[in-house]
Design a protein around this nucleic acid. Structure first.
Length: 219
DNA sequence: AAGGCGGGCAACCGCTTCCAA
DNA sequence: ATTGGAAGCGGTTGCCCGCCT
């Protein structure tokens, strides 16, 4: 493939983005849409590489991004999905609307990297897996009996359906098969998405029972 | 008070994958 | 079928800031 990209040779600006650059990029992408990043850089009047523009947009400027602390739910999802798929940050990010792969990656490295090899972390992971097995069972039964109570679940499913299918088929492979629902009409979802009456808002705190309390006490 | 240190995060780099010509 | 450019991804770096001594 290509050797050096020669960013330096081309004289692209590097380093932190200024508010002016952000404004130029935001306005341009809002008007013309995403894609063709190398031409975006030029057309928007930015002396930045296409890659740099894309990264800035995706990780910082894109509408709908959440800022700030990850919720316990999000944390739990990260733990569980990372246990399943490893460092597939962009895949994991699809289950966390408003969060970027970069953010998740940084969060993982900051909060869990050291713990990964520790007994405490492994214990927590095992606990999550066990809980999921139980909740899969419960959810299957509830789904039969009380589908109206699964509103949140349905929303998440709708949100994740497309990517989940792709992940199941293309990325997770055998490891995934062992953990998917036994019936073809159910896709895998993390424990956090299942059978929990809290919404996915930021309202769940350390006092919550069961899984969330446990997750919160991870450290 | 100030210097050192470590954590957190934005951004860069290099590689892979995708896709159009 | 091949090739090269664009986009995407994950690893890494480096800076900033707050805490500690």
């Amino acid at each position: 493939m290509m050797m050096g990209r020669g960013l330096a040779e081309q004289g692209w600006r590097k380093g932190p983005w200024t508010p002016e650059e952000d404004k130029l990029l935001s306005e341009y992408v809002s008007l013309h849409g995403e894609g063709r990043w190398s031409s975006v850089a030029i057309a928007a009047g930015l002396n930045r590489s296409g890659k740099s523009c894309r990264l800035r947009w995706v990780n910082y400027l894109r509408p709908g991004l959440k800022r700030g602390q990850l919720t316990p739910q999000e944390e739990g999802i990260i733990i569980e999905l990372h246990a399943l798929w490893g460092n597939k940050w962009s895949t994991i990010a699809r289950y966390l609307p408003g969060r970027t792969d970069n953010e998740i990656k940084n969060y993982w490295r900051t909060h869990f990297k050291k713990e990964k090899s520790s007994q405490k972390y492994e214990k927590r992971k095992q606990q999550l897996m066990k809980q999921r097995e139980q909740q899969e069972q419960q959810q299957l039964e509830q789904h039969k009996q009380q589908p109206q109570e699964q509103d949140m679940m349905e929303n998440i499913l709708a949100l994740a359906e497309t990517s989940t299918q792709k992940i199941t088929e293309a990325q997770a492979g055998q490891e995934m098969q062992a953990l998917t629902y036994p019936t073809s009409e159910h896709h895998y979802l993390p424990v956090m998405y299942q059978d929990h009456d809290a919404s996915l808002s930021d309202t769940v705190g350390p006092d919550d029972d069961g899984l969330w309390g446990g997750l919160w006490n991870l450290q």
